[in-house]
């Protein structure tokens, strides 16, 4: 347990390694725990907006995501359609230019909904089950491939021995 003189015949490095590993932990200073608890208390008292985003209340996370998405979307939209808006002469023309992409999205969503409802009516439940099974199978194959790739790329480290790198 304790450092003792190096016994004759024993490898010095192995002996030292054993002695070092057997050294007990040093006692932490008495001031550490109160310091940590005070810091934790101060940390917990911080308003939510000064904490990491992941610690924000759910409603604040949702609102911040919506605001951020809206801002980014508006910026992208404005950059893409700035010329159209500038070219339109009347207010009605400006509105039409502004509304055109929204109308296109609405039309696409409508077409998709009609297609899906037609499919739901025409295709039997067996086919839907088969499609679901196929999706599950593809998912399982992806998981298996991912696992194999992970094992190949990140093999588990062998246990180090004292002399392995010498």
């Amino acid at each position: 347990m304790n450092p003792t003189p190096h016994p004759p015949g024993e490898d010095w490095e192995a002996w030292l390694d054993r002695q070092l590993r057997q050294l007990p932990d040093r006692p932490a200073p008495a001031s550490l725990a109160p310091r940590v608890l005070a810091a934790v208390a101060a940390h917990a008292r911080r308003p939510w907006y000064r904490q990491p985003w992941f610690a924000w209340p759910r409603w604040a996370q949702v609102i911040s995501l919506l605001v951020l998405s809206g801002a980014l979307g508006s910026l992208t939209y404005a950059l893409l359609h700035l010329e159209d808006l500038a070219a339109a002469e009347t207010l009605a023309a400006q509105f039409a230019a502004w509304w055109a992409p929204v109308e296109a999205v609405r039309a696409a969503a409508h077409a998709l909904a009609v297609t899906l409802s037609l499919l739901a009516r025409q295709v039997s439940g067996t086919v839907w089950l088969a499609l679901g099974g196929l999706a599950l199978l593809m998912y399982a194959v992806c998981m298996a491939l991912g696992t194999v790739l992970y094992r190949l790329c990140c093999p588990a480290r062998p246990q180090r021995t004292l002399h392995e790198t010498r």
Partner: peptide
């Protein structure tokens, strides 16, 4: 766990005051 964390930091940085700062950061 305070002894474990403090000892790990102290053996690396070699200075008790700095090891205590690091231990505090670890526990935060």
């Amino acid at each position: 766990y305070q002894d474990l964390v403090y000892t790990t930091a102290l053996r690396l940085v070699g200075r008790p005051a700095e090891a205590e700062d690091i231990a505090q950061e670890v526990f935060l």
